[in-house]
Design a protein around this nucleic acid. Structure first.
Length: 235
DNA sequence: GTCCAGGGCCTAC
DNA sequence: GTAGGCCATGGA
């Protein structure tokens, strides 16, 4: 039993679905469409997903701009590059040695297994694609889900640090929840909907940027029972 | 000068 | 299986 409403699995799922939809609608009403992912091609989404790992987007964007200036926003372009050159170009994104290697590893994987055809790789069913991404060194669950959702347009919910912070601080989830369990928390309750998943994740990040960064946070954040002038939801 | 950002890997227990 | 250290730049 939770909230004295219904103890059945189906009931809990319905309850959770209603909560999630209400959160989504309030965020959408507050912020509107976020137009994510900020990239022109699936390959650029993938580069961005790797370059943004534990990094402010602005820094990742600077690295992408460097690649763009050199005409390197393509698999073929990057494959002709040596490691040191790529490191120099992605330097603004931080962790640049790791990230250069991760990008190279990804490109090698597509070259070897798909003859350089990214479309063929992305065209797989969702689960096999996700699992294959997770076998590539440097691509963890969040990066994989970002690629699946925003580059392959398949409904895999993206969980990030803001999702965890916002939802745990509201006590909607247990703060010790694992990545996969938190992803399931969304995907079990919500219909599989690419556009909605894209928008939901983007809105969560927007909310996190404004109200839920590590430190200043939650005096002003939804935990107080209000959010940007809106009455917010309580668990 | 200090803290933080749209993670992931490796090692030690 | 999980806590802790490490990777690194740029902005507040």
């Amino acid at each position: 039993m939770r909230n004295g409403v219904c103890g059945s699995r189906t009931g809990l799922r319905a309850e959770r679905k209603a909560l999630l939809l209400e959160i989504y609608e309030k965020l959408f009403a507050a912020f509107g469409p976020q137009h994510w992912w900020p990239a022109r091609t699936p390959f650029e989404v993938i580069l961005g997903a790797i370059l943004a790992q534990n990094t402010a987007w602005k820094n990742a964007a600077a690295a992408i701009a460097n690649l763009d200036r050199n005409g390197l926003l393509s698999l073929e372009g990057l494959c002709g590059l040596d490691g040191a050159q790529l490191e120099a170009l992605v330097r603004p994104s931080g962790f640049y040695r790791q990230k250069a290697k991760r990008i190279m590893t990804f490109c090698d994987h597509i070259q070897k297994n798909y003859h350089g055809c990214l479309e063929q790789f992305l065209d797989q069913d969702m689960e096999p694609l996700r699992q294959e991404l997770l076998t590539i060194r440097g691509i963890g669950p969040e990066t994989a889900d970002s690629i699946v959702l925003y580059a392959a347009f398949k409904p895999s919910f993206v969980v990030d640090a803001y999702t965890w912070r916002i939802f745990s601080r509201h006590a909607w989830i247990d703060e010790t929840i694992s990545y996969d369990d938190l992803r399931e928390y969304f995907m079990e309750a919500l219909e599989l909907d690419v556009q909605m998943y894209q928008e939901f994740h983007a809105l969560v990040v927007r909310t996190g940027h404004l109200y839920c960064r590590r430190k200043p946070l939650c005096q002003m954040c939804p935990l107080g029972g209000y959010f940007d002038g809106l009455v917010f939801l309580r668990p």
